[in-house]
Design a binder for these strands. Structure first.
Lengths: 159, 159
DNA sequence: TAAAATAACTTTGAAATTCAAACTATTTGA
DNA sequence: TCAAATAGTTTGAATTTCAAAGTTATTTTA
């Protein structure tokens, strides 16, 4: 016997594919802007005179193993030229070091100065706090399945 | 008795709070930049001469009920002044309309012209495709609990 | 090994994006 | 009515971005 499609959907599944899609869409796109805004406000409150963009450059440097201009720009998804201007001002403001690689003198290796490390610590602490408060509100840490799925989602975008 | 490490991982492995935090952090921050880049590339491929930013302005307009400068800028999280310049170029390029509200002549009401609707349709279709391909890869649509959790996560950031 | 190609980066020129603060026009409230 | 509040625009300045051209160093190839 054939069961009407609506039945199956109604009884067996609360969320349909379209709803799920909307939620993920929203999460991935709209929410992010809010986080950026909150982070920016946090920097201001702490008296840090850097844009979120500049903080992300510092973050990218800290997460990159071989810290050449190419590698960092690749991680950020911007051209090397764009990164050059960014590094110019960060160097000027005393956040990063910058020197030629002695092995391959075409390369420029950037590094984080103490001032930058301090900013990144602030930034990390803020992120941890934010996510912890999400956990608390949602009791997420009990939710094995969610974490597992998020990990899959995360790895999907890495490829 | 000591249990081999693999066993524990295989049978008992739980995500701890720190791991979960890292994954969510990554998802919310690093992944988003990749999506933006993919979307931008898609626009280019389709021959659409707009920046992702401009597309987001159009999107914000379409999602706003009373389409005044204030309301749209609030949704975007930028100042009205910033929106003014954005609307200037979009108006110039023929994507949006712009007229004073007759009821309250301080207000400016913006609207989407056919050219903008076409771009948004492209953009929506692309998003749906992207998320559908995530679903397929992950068999996410079977995962009721995930969707529920994501919804909670989403609503957390709305407040 | 000398010339050509490639790689890594900077510079230049131009356009977007953003904000704060000053300014204009309109409406509201006392 | 007139001061205050609201809604936008303009201005001036800084950031951010890219493409394309230029520089220097290294590698490949003929």
């Amino acid at each position: 016997m054939q069961v009407p499609e609506q039945w199956e959907l109604g009884i067996l599944r609360k969320y349909n594919r379209e709803q799920a899609r909307d939620i993920i869409n929203e999460l991935l796109v709209e929410i992010f802007n809010k986080i950026l805004a909150i982070e920016g406000q946090n920097l201001k409150d702490k008296g840090i005179k850097l844009s979120m963009n500049e903080v992300h450059v510092l973050e990218a440097i800290s997460l990159t193993d071989e810290r050449t201009m190419s590698n960092v720009s690749k991680r950020l998804g911007i051209t090397i030229g764009s990164l050059t201007t960014s590094i110019n001002t960060l160097y000027q403001k005393g956040y990063v070091s910058r020197e030629r690689d002695l092995e391959d003198r075409r390369k420029v290796v950037v590094g984080l100065l103490p001032k930058a490390e301090a900013v990144l610590e602030e930034h990390d602490a803020f992120h941890e706090e934010m996510i912890d408060s999400i956990f608390e509100e949602m009791e997420l840490d009990k939710d094995e399945l969610l974490i597992e799925s998020l990990e899959k989602l995360s790895s999907y975008f890495k490829k």
